[in-house]
């Protein structure tokens, strides 16, 4: 397996089904911070806990200006039922066809088992990876790493001020 993409790398573009009849492209989130959480499979116990945890603290991510996207190789119909059962309030994308293509682009596809590894990427407003982490498969990585990485980024409020002053200068 290729090493997962490291900070300083441009986040590979993608467009994946987010429901059976809708797609979501990373480019649609340009200008916002994005947390990508790759996971092996819907319904497996560890993933469920990990996503349930992120689901619970979505307000903390959003308060830091970040959108959360889940990605696995499961199909959109499977995702739909899984999201409903777990009451998920963030999109989960189907890296289903061609299978694992996006996971492969991020260097976290496990060819031998045909699933994405448990990898996390934090992407900044310019589409650059600023933090990434891959945890052992059986280990739920928690959210402390993501929050620590978000806290190291400039505060969202000051970004707003910068944006305003940039507009004034323009």
């Amino acid at each position: 397996m290729a090493r997962y993409l490291q900070p300083g790398t441009k986040a590979p573009a993608f467009s994946l089904p987010v429901t059976p009849d809708q797609k979501l492209a990373l480019s649609e989130l340009a200008g916002r911070r994005v947390i990508l959480t790759f996971y092996p499979a819907d319904w497996s116990p560890v993933c469920g806990d990990q996503l349930a945890l992120y689901n619970q603290i979505l307000p903390e991510f959003r308060r830091r200006g970040a959108e959360l996207l889940g990605i696995s190789v499961d199909g959109a119909w499977c995702h739909q039922e899984f999201a409903k059962a777990r009451n998920l309030h963030f999109p989960i994308l189907a890296d289903f066809h061609p299978k694992g293509a996006v996971a492969t682009a991020y260097g976290c596809y496990m060819e031998d088992v045909g699933e994405a590894a448990r990898a996390l990427f934090l992407i900044d407003e310019q589409g650059m990876i600023v933090w990434s982490y891959q945890s052992p498969l059986a280990v739920n990585p928690g959210a402390d790493g993501i929050l620590d990485a978000l806290d190291k980024m400039p505060a969202v409020e000051s970004l707003d001020v910068d944006a305003k002053s940039a507009r004034k200068r323009a």
């Binding site: 806990d49 990990q50 349930a52 945890l53 603290i57 903390e60 280990v139 739920n140 990585p141 928690g142 959210a143 402390d144 929050l147 620590d148």
Partner: peptide
Amino acid sequence: MGGIRSGVNGTPTFFINGERYN
């Protein structure tokens, strides 16, 4: 939130003398 920042990743999570028990 203290749990989240300490790396609690599900329940139950235990810490023994401050170190997460896995």
